[in-house]
Amino acid sequence: NQASVVANQLIPINTALTLVMMRSEVVTPVGIPAEDIPRLVGMQVNRAVPLGTTLMPDMVKGYA
């Protein structure tokens, strides 16, 4: 099963992502693939992302 990117903490709206904010986990539904974590660093979320939430492509500005 493919691992997805999951929020390791509450990520406030418009926050630029850092490695410490994300972890990989096998979840359903599948979100952004864990191998894209390096690409996500520095990108901003367009909404608040609660701890444990799977990051979906539409949550990250410029990802989709």
Rank of each mutant, 00 (worst) to 15 (best):
Gly31Phe: 02
Ile37Val: 11
Val6Pro: 01
Thr54His: 11
Ser4Val: 12
Thr18Trp: 06
Ile32Gly: 00
Ile32Leu: 07
Ala64Arg: 06
Ile37Leu: 12
Arg23Phe: 09
Pro38Ile: 06
Pro38Tyr: 05
Thr54Cys: 02
Thr15Ala: 06
Gln44Tyr: 10
Val30Tyr: 08
Ala34Phe: 05
Thr53Phe: 13
Leu17Lys: 00
Ile11Trp: 01
Pro33Tyr: 12
Thr54Phe: 08
Leu10Phe: 08
Val30Lys: 02
Thr54Trp: 02
Met59Phe: 15
Pro33Leu: 10
Leu51Glu: 13
Asn14Arg: 03
Met43Leu: 12
Pro12Thr: 06
Pro50Asn: 14
Arg47Pro: 03
Pro29Gly: 13
Lys61Asp: 07
Thr15His: 11
Ala16Ser: 10
Leu55Arg: 00
Leu51Ala: 12
Ala7Lys: 00
Val6Arg: 03
Met22Thr: 03
Ala34Glu: 15
Val30His: 09
Ala16Glu: 04
Thr54Arg: 04
Ala64Cys: 15
Gln44Thr: 11
Pro50Trp: 15
Ile37Phe: 07
Leu51Tyr: 09
Val60Pro: 01
Thr15Trp: 06
Tyr63Ala: 14
Leu51Gly: 10
Ile13Ala: 05
Val6Ile: 13
Asn14Val: 04
Glu25Asp: 15
Ser4Met: 04
Leu55Thr: 01
Ile11Asp: 00
Val5Met: 02
Thr18Lys: 05
Val27Thr: 10
Met22Phe: 12
Ala3Met: 13
Gly62Met: 09
Ala64Pro: 12
Asn46Ser: 13
Val27Arg: 06
Gly62Gln: 14
Val60Asp: 01
Asn1Ser: 15
Pro57Ile: 04
Met59Gly: 06
Thr28Ser: 07
Thr15Ile: 05
Val30Thr: 14
Val41Gln: 14
Thr28Gly: 06
Val60Ile: 13
Asn1Leu: 11
Val26Cys: 10
Asp58Leu: 06
Val27Met: 11
Arg39Pro: 03
Ile37Ala: 15
Ile13Thr: 10
Ala64Gly: 13
Leu10Asp: 12
Asn8Cys: 03
Gly31Val: 03
Met59Asp: 07
Pro12Arg: 03
Asp36Glu: 11
Met21Thr: 07
Met21Val: 07
Gly42Asp: 10
Pro57Val: 06
Leu55His: 00
Gly52Val: 01
Ala34Gln: 15
Pro57Phe: 03
Glu35Tyr: 04
Gln9Tyr: 10
Asn14Leu: 06
Val30Leu: 07
Gly42Pro: 01
Leu17Gly: 01
Gly52Arg: 07
Glu25Met: 03
Gln44Ala: 14
Gln2Pro: 15
Gln2Asp: 15
Val60Met: 14
Ala48Ser: 07
Pro33Glu: 04
Arg39His: 07
Ile32Pro: 00
Val6Ser: 04
Arg39Val: 09
Ala3Trp: 02
Ile37Gly: 11
Pro38Met: 06
Val6Met: 15
Thr28Asp: 15
Ala16Gln: 05
Leu40Gln: 01
Gly62Pro: 04
Ser4His: 02
Asn1Cys: 14
Leu40Arg: 00
Ile37Ser: 14
Val20Lys: 13
Met21Trp: 03
Ser4Cys: 02
Val49Leu: 12
Gln44Glu: 09
Val20Phe: 09
Gly31Asn: 01
Ile37Arg: 07
Gly52Ile: 01
Gln44Pro: 09
Asn46Arg: 06
Asp58Ile: 09
Gln9Trp: 07
Met56Thr: 11
Val26Phe: 05
Arg39Ala: 07
Asn46Gln: 13
Val30Gln: 11
Arg23Gln: 12
Gly62Ala: 05
Asn8Trp: 07
Met59Ala: 12
Val5Phe: 01
Gln9Pro: 01
Met43Ile: 08
Val49Phe: 02
Gln9Cys: 06
Asp58Cys: 15
Leu40Val: 11
Val20Asp: 12
Val49Ala: 06
Arg39Gly: 12
Met59His: 13
Val45Tyr: 00
Gly42Glu: 03
Val49Met: 12
Pro38Ala: 13
Gly42Ala: 11
Val41Ser: 13
Asp58Met: 07
Met56Arg: 11
Leu19Thr: 12
Asn46Glu: 10
Leu10Thr: 08
Val41Cys: 03
Tyr63Ser: 06
Ala16Tyr: 06
Leu17Tyr: 00
Val30Ala: 08
Gln44Leu: 07
Pro38Cys: 15
Pro29Asn: 12
Val26Gln: 13
Tyr63Arg: 06
Glu35Gln: 08
Ala7Gln: 01
Gln2Met: 10
Gly52Asn: 11
Val41Arg: 05
Thr54Glu: 02
Ile32Gln: 01
Ala7Tyr: 00
Met22Ile: 13
Met22Gln: 03
Gly42His: 07
Pro57Met: 07
Met21Ile: 04
Ala3Gln: 05
Pro12Ser: 04
Arg47Lys: 12
Asn1Asp: 15
Leu40Thr: 02
Leu10Pro: 08
Gly42Thr: 10
Gly31Ser: 03
Leu40Ser: 01
Thr18Ser: 12
Gly31Arg: 04
Ile11Ser: 00
Lys61Ser: 13
Met59Ile: 09
Leu51Val: 07
Val49Ser: 05
Val49Glu: 01
Gly31Thr: 04
Gly42Gln: 06
Tyr63Trp: 13
Leu40Gly: 00
Ile13Tyr: 04
Gly52Pro: 00
Pro57Trp: 03
Ala48Asp: 15
Ala48Gly: 09
Met43Tyr: 13
Met56Asp: 09
Val6Gly: 02
Ser4Glu: 00
Val27Leu: 04
Ala7Thr: 08
Arg39Cys: 03
Leu19Pro: 11
Asp58Arg: 03
Val45Asn: 02
Arg39Met: 10
Ala64Ser: 14
Thr18Phe: 09
Asn1Gln: 15
Val5His: 00
Met59Lys: 01
Arg23Asp: 10
Asn1Met: 15
Thr53Gln: 14
Gly42Ile: 01
Pro33Phe: 14
Ala34Cys: 15
Ile13Pro: 05
Asp58Val: 06
Pro57Gln: 11
Tyr63Phe: 14
Leu19Ile: 07
Val27Cys: 04
Gln2Cys: 14
Asn8Ser: 15
Thr18Gln: 04
Gly42Ser: 12
Met56Ala: 11
Val30Ile: 12
Arg39Leu: 10
Ala3Val: 10
Met56Tyr: 11
Val27Asp: 11
Gly42Trp: 04
Leu51Thr: 13
Val20Leu: 08
Val27Tyr: 08
Ala16Val: 05
Val27His: 07
Asp36Met: 10
Arg47Tyr: 11
Lys61His: 10
Met22Asn: 00
Asn46His: 12
Ser24Met: 10
Val49Asn: 01
Gly31Glu: 02
Val26Asn: 08
Ile32His: 01
Ala3His: 09
Ile32Ser: 02
Pro33Asn: 13
Lys61Met: 08
Val60Leu: 08
Tyr63Lys: 03
Asp36Leu: 10
Val27Trp: 03
Met22Tyr: 02
Leu51His: 09
Gly42Val: 01
Asp36Ile: 15
Ala16Gly: 10
Ser24Lys: 06
Ile37Cys: 03
Gly31Tyr: 03
Thr18Leu: 06
